[in-house]
């Protein structure tokens, strides 16, 4: 029961999506399934939220390392939820209804001035790490790595007007821009395509294994 039911569910869902490419009448079943996927994903997001709350509360009650920050997490989570729920339901009560994230709502303000700077800055830090890695770690240690770095140079210097400005004294022709473009259009396309075909076949075989029930790790089997 614990193994079989999920395996059957997996196979049916998989078959419907795979076969409907060839059998048009299955289109409707497929759209139904898409509806359900969409709804299940919302629950997955809420599962994540409940999990986060659970972990944070445990951290706080057991006074584990960094529990003070867990309080902050829970508080900001509750504030965000409260604002969203308030904006959402009060908007729905209006006639005509108003969306919870229309420009001007509190939720939109939170998005613009709290969520955006935090998430953007988090990722912007990567720029610093790239720079320090380029100084400390990226080495032409063998022929392959050398080829990689050189290609990288031409792309970095060609895609912005950097190298072309340096040769401005000699020529106005955007030589490096064209070369970077050539790299992208030909060798890059070729390499990406080889990888792409390989990955497609890999996905095909793992999907097949999942649908046929050979692969069972997602249902807790091996």
């Amino acid at each position: 029961m614990r193994r079989e039911v999920p395996l059957i569910i997996t196979s049916i869902a998989g078959l419907v999506f795979a076969i409907s490419f060839f059998i048009p009448l299955l289109g409707d079943a497929q759209n139904r399934f898409s509806d359900w996927v969409s709804i299940v994903q919302s629950f997955a997001v809420w599962l994540g939220l409940l999990n986060l709350t659970k972990v944070s509360l445990e951290k706080i009650t057991r006074k584990r390392e960094g529990w003070q920050y867990a309080i902050l997490t829970v508080v900001s989570l509750v504030i965000m939820l409260a604002i969203g729920m308030f904006d959402g339901f009060s908007g729905l009560a209006q006639d005509p209804p108003v969306s919870y994230r229309e420009p001007g709502t509190n939720f939109d303000w939170m998005f613009r001035y709290v969520y955006t700077p935090l998430t953007s800055t988090m990722f912007a830090m990567l720029a610093f790490f790239v720079a320090s890695a380029s100084y400390r770690a990226f080495r032409a240690r063998n022929f392959e790595a050398t080829l990689l770095l050189v290609a990288g140079f031409f792309v970095m210097g060609g895609r912005v007007p950097l190298f072309d400005l340096l040769i401005r004294w000699f020529t106005d022709y955007p030589l490096f821009n064209q070369f970077a473009d050539w790299i992208m259009t030909y060798p890059n396309t070729a390499g990406q395509r080889a990888i792409m075909i390989g990955i497609a076949l890999g996905i095909m075989s793992s999907s097949l294994r999942i649908i046929l029930g050979i692969e069972r790790s997602h249902v807790g089997g091996q």
Binding site: F129, V130, S132, A133, R136, A137
Partner: peptide, 10 residues
């Protein structure tokens, strides 16, 4: 990936 590889390298 790059943060880990860099530190390991250093």
């Amino acid at each position: 990936s790059l943060i880990l590889a860099e530190t390991g390298n250093s």
